[in-house]
């Protein structure tokens, strides 16, 4: 068997024999676990040709959905998971890299590499076990921000005798006033929502929004790492916020495998979000400060 093979890696999980049984991934390929010898860790993979998955947007969306479904299923069976990003493929070693001829096969390369990092991977899996990622997106619907909260009289823009240019100017002014009122409401809501969510979440990352609506002002968009038993507590915070402010719109997604909280495991990604935070009062201060 000299043809080149590769492994498409979905996730690193606690090795539970049988956890991948019946699970399919991209294009319905059957998945299997590759145990890392001497550890409790396994890689969830399918056997692939060493070619990346490329395609039109709709095709990529289907693959993403299939990958996410597969990872979620195995995550629920094993409890802890370090999900991979899309298109992580490990190929056979180029023969040229090994003077003895015939480089290592993909599976050997993958398990060699994972064996060397088993301690940090296990530690991260432990930290993520029983936790999930929730996505919270809060916005203010500007069409529901009442005229009372804005400064100008909307009728001013309709006044007869105005030139077209002036009418447009006043309409823009009116729109700006609504934006300002929504912005102030958004500041207050953000402070309140962040405060309450931080009391529940174990980790919190500000995230960009994937979903945008033209008449909405962003309040908060975050990925939360939450213990599974605390999902309803987050849900209660959100339902109360929504009940108190009629202009509030909330998207609440999950529970997902902790995609946004894996970077510590393999140390390849920059932390984002609250990286500037200083340790909780225990940080040593420079002498003399």
């Amino acid at each position: 068997m000299t043809e080149q093979t590769a492994l498409y890696v979905y996730a690193l999980v606690r090795h539970r024999p049988g956890a991948a049984d019946g699970v399919t991934g991209l294009d319905d390929r059957p998945l299997r676990l590759v145990p890392v010898p001497g550890t409790d860790v396994a890689a969830l993979v399918h056997d692939a040709s060493p070619k990346p998955f490329e395609g039109a947007d709709d095709q990529v969306r289907r693959w993403v959905e299939q990958q996410s479904r597969a990872v979620t299923t195995v995550w629920e069976r094993t409890g802890g998971v370090l999900p991979m990003t899309f298109n992580v493929l490990v190929a056979d070693e180029e023969p040229a890299q090994d003077p003895a001829g015939g480089g290592r096969r993909a599976e050997q390369r993958l398990t060699d590499w994972l064996t060397g990092r088993a301690a940090e991977i296990t530690e991260r899996l432990d930290a993520l076990t029983g936790r999930c990622e929730l996505r919270v997106e809060i916005t203010v619907d500007r069409t529901a921000v009442t005229a009372r909260e804005t400064r100008t009289d909307p009728r001013a823009a309709q006044l007869a005798g105005r030139s077209a240019g002036m009418r447009r100017l006043l309409a823009r002014q009116q729109e700006q006033d609504v934006r300002n009122a929504a912005g102030q409401l958004a500041d207050t809501l953000h402070a309140e929502a962040r405060h309450r969510l931080l009391s529940v979440a174990e980790d919190f990352r500000d995230r960009g929004r994937a979903h945008r609506a033209p008449d909405e002002t962003d309040v908060l968009s975050a990925a939360l790492l939450v213990r599974k038993e605390d999902i309803d507590t987050v849900g209660t915070v959100l339902s109360e916020l929504r009940a108190r402010h009629p202009a509030v719109r909330i998207r609440f997604l999950g529970p997902w495998p902790p995609y946004s909280f894996t970077e510590d495991g393999l140390g390849m990604r920059e932390r984002d979000g609250t990286a500037e935070a200083v340790g909780g009062g225990t940080r040593p201060h420079p002498p003399g400060v």
Binding site: A6, V9, L12, P50, K51, P52, V60, R61, V64, E65, Q67, S68, L82, P83, M84, T85, F86, V88, L89, V90, A91, R109, L110, W113, R135, G208, A210, H211, A223, L253, W256, Y259, S260, T262, E263, G265, L266, M268, R269
Partner: peptide, 20 residues
């Protein structure tokens, strides 16, 4: 849409030398 964003941007990666 959110899954596409998170799966393309987030999730762990392996050592660059290993990747196709």
């Amino acid at each position: 849409d959110d899954l596409v964003e998170v799966l393309l941007n987030k999730g762990a990666v392996l050592h660059l030398d290993l990747i196709v």
